[in-house]
């Protein structure tokens, strides 16, 4: 295959990564933006979403679409509820102190991960996609008879992958509407801008925090349910999304939703394209160094204002 089809394939894969990443990262970004809490356990909420999706799909039987549809609704709700419980029992009692909450969420990471290991086990398990039609993509080539359309082998995608991109876009739009056009979004933004003043105006800040923490975790879980038919559910699968979400949130500007989505697209696409040319380990090394250096030299993120 030539370079062109490779790039198309890589950008399609990248678009799927970007879609899922945007959902996960927006969850992380919401929590950081409103609560000023760096949630190290975010990747584990993602993993929980995938594992719960497997449980549901496995125990439902029937047509795979049925189990998947139920998982799409139930997994984010369950994970959101777990997150709300964690917020009320742990984070609230730490008074949302930035450093202590990091330590506590590291603890939470190990608790969730290891409990999953004890119950779900160390195997990676697949979930069947609800629909999975293969779609081939044509390519144009200047051959003996002038330009002609060919169908290169291996160049194609599946209807499911396109659906993932569509679903992620819909949900992100929903989050945007929630934040900008509803009363609860207004209250969240007020809390983000000035916690003290929000309290003074009678906003139940602690309830808002619990809601935001649950919403952030639910978004990660939703992203995982969408990706689990492509990847597999495994108890250690939370590491990469956590790292990538961090990268996205930091590059996009801490707490800025449009910046986060933009950075997710950038990182997702470049991740797909870079990993065609470089080894994944080298790509990860470059990515982690990039995050470190961006934080050092542009603490506000690439799109955000510089300075503290």
């Amino acid at each position: 295959m030539e370079l062109g089809p490779y790039l198309i394939l890589a950008s399609l894969e990248g678009a799927v990564t970007a879609a899922v990443l945007a959902l996960t990262a927006v969850g992380l970004s919401l929590v950081f933006g409103v609560m000023r809490v760096v949630n190290i356990a975010h990747g584990e909420f993602f993993m929980l979403g995938a594992v719960i999706a497997w449980w549901i799909a496995h125990s439902m039987g029937g047509h795979p679409a049925l189990g998947f549809a139920v998982a799409l609704v139930v997994a984010p709700l369950v994970v959101g509820a777990i997150a709300v419980a964690a917020d009320m029992t742990i984070l609230k009692r730490l008074d949302y102190d930035p450093e202590r909450t990091i330590v506590a969420t590291i603890g939470l990471l190990y608790i969730i991960q290891q409990l999953t290991l004890m119950t779900y086990g160390p195997e990676a398990r697949p979930v069947e996609a609800p629909f999975n039609t293969r779609l081939a993509i044509p390519w144009f080539e200047n051959g003996e008879n002038g330009w002609q359309m060919i169908w290169p082998w291996g160049l194609g995608t599946t209807s499911y992958k396109l659906a993932v991109i569509g679903a992620a876009m819909t949900v992100l739009l929903g989050v945007w509407v929630l934040m900008k056009r509803t009363r609860i979004g207004l209250v969240m933004r007020a809390t983000q801008t000035d916690r003290e003043m929000a309290l003074a105006f009678g906003i139940p800040v602690e309830r808002i925090y619990a809601l935001v923490f649950g919403l952030g975790a639910a978004l990660a879980a939703l992203a995982a349910v969408l990706i689990v038919p492509i990847q597999q559910a495994h108890y250690l699968m939370g590491g990469d999304p956590l790292l990538l979400s961090f990268i996205v949130v930091i590059i996009g500007g801490l707490g800025s939703l449009p910046g986060t989505v933009l950075a997710a697209i950038l990182i997702g696409l470049s991740d797909g394209i870079i990993s065609v040319f470089f080894s994944p380990t080298l790509a990860k090394i470059l990515a982690t160094l990039l995050v470190g250096l961006v934080l050092v030299f542009k603490p506000g993120g690439l799109t955000g204002s510089s300075g503290k």
Binding site: I90, L108, Q113, Q114
Partner: peptide, 16 residues
């Protein structure tokens, strides 16, 4: 084999 669970629980209890 999930011994890191203990580490997690201890971390949370300590910070609390």
């Amino acid at each position: 084999s999930a011994y890191m669970l203990i580490a997690g629980v201890v971390l949370v209890l300590l910070t609390l």
